[in-house]
């Protein structure tokens, strides 16, 4: 039988996938380790050791990317975890417009990032944009969302949350729906109110869903490029430059070695932050 298994489930079936995945993903990843140590013009290279990395860590227009990327990832994933949970709980209650609202919250996720970036940049216009017009009606003077170096990064992050919170919400909804009814019944016999239901049943038992949301949105945040590029191109100054946008800028400027060093730093960063986070989160899950 063993012989037969080997013959039927032949590794030959993996060949097409293997060739494509190796050539266009794994191979570039591996050789990036080498080319990040060179001055590189695609046709020619010169070995320069860790100079590119040194530059990345010392040059202030480059290393601002570390701080910004970390802030961006923490803010976007944090807000998606919280708002996704609130929306998820809300959209699991018995309301009439449930189906419509679920679709409405989810749909932005299917829009293209560039389109969302274009629309929000115009809504965030400091004098004419509808966000500040709306705030003016309430008597608040809105800030220059994308022009102020202190808040531009957060404005982009908020747009990201608007677009992506729908995924977080549907993951939570799936998690909440899988909680057995008996827990809620037991609680209502013991006389718990709706706060107890949320705090003692829903919250601890939707931890697996919450962990997926944290991991997915955190990694997504670390890798973000297109939204920033569509809204601010890294500006004003370098205020919204993320590692991924710096990689693109260095590529455009023809510094291929430097750009590749940024890439290596990004994927080492993602692995160093995401794997332990994943381990930690999956340990603290409660069994049903």
């Amino acid at each position: 039988m063993m012989q037969l298994t080997k013959k039927i489930y032949s590794y030959k079936f993996l060949l097409p996938a293997g060739i494509i995945y190796f050539t266009f993903f794994l191979l570039p990843t591996v050789i990036s380790l080498f080319f990040s140590l060179t001055r590189w013009t695609l046709t020619d290279w010169e070995f320069i050791g860790f100079e590119n990395y040194e530059m990345f860590f010392t040059e202030s227009s480059l290393n601002i990317g570390f701080r910004n990327t970390l802030i961006y990832a923490v803010v976007t994933s944090g807000l998606k975890v919280i708002f996704g949970l609130l929306l998820g709980v809300f959209l699991c209650t018995e309301i009439k417009t449930k189906g419509f609202l679920r679709s409405m919250v989810f749909f932005p996720n299917l829009l293209s990032t560039i389109a969302v970036g274009v629309v929000f940049s115009s809504m965030m216009h400091p004098s004419r944009g509808i966000i500040n017009m709306g705030l003016k009606v309430l008597g608040i003077k809105g800030p220059d969302w994308l022009g102020n170096t202190n808040i531009a990064l957060f404005s982009v992050a908020l747009t990201d949350v608007w677009k992506g919170v729908g995924v977080a919400t549907v993951i939570y909804i799936a998690g909440i729906m899988s909680i057995p009814r008996q827990y809620y019944e037991a609680l209502s016999i013991d006389g718990g109110d709706s706060w107890d239901r949320f705090w003692n049943v829903t919250l601890p038992l939707c931890r697996p869903a919450m962990n997926s949301v944290i991991i997915l949105s955190f990694i997504g945040g670390l890798r973000t490029f297109d939204l920033v590029w569509a809204m601010t191109k890294g500006g004003p100054g370098f205020a919204t430059d993320l590692i991924a946008s710096i990689i693109y800028k260095q590529y455009q400027a023809g510094f291929y070695g430097l750009s590749t060093a940024g890439n290596v730093i990004l994927f080492l960063g993602v692995s160093i932050l995401a794997f332990p986070l994943y381990k930690y989160l999956s340990r603290s899950e409660v069994d049903l």
């Binding site: 590189w40 890439n263 994927f267």
Partner: peptide, 8 residues
């Protein structure tokens, strides 16, 4: 998880 290496 990890982002692709672009220039390579």
């Amino acid at each position: 998880m990890i982002p692709p290496a672009v220039v390579p």
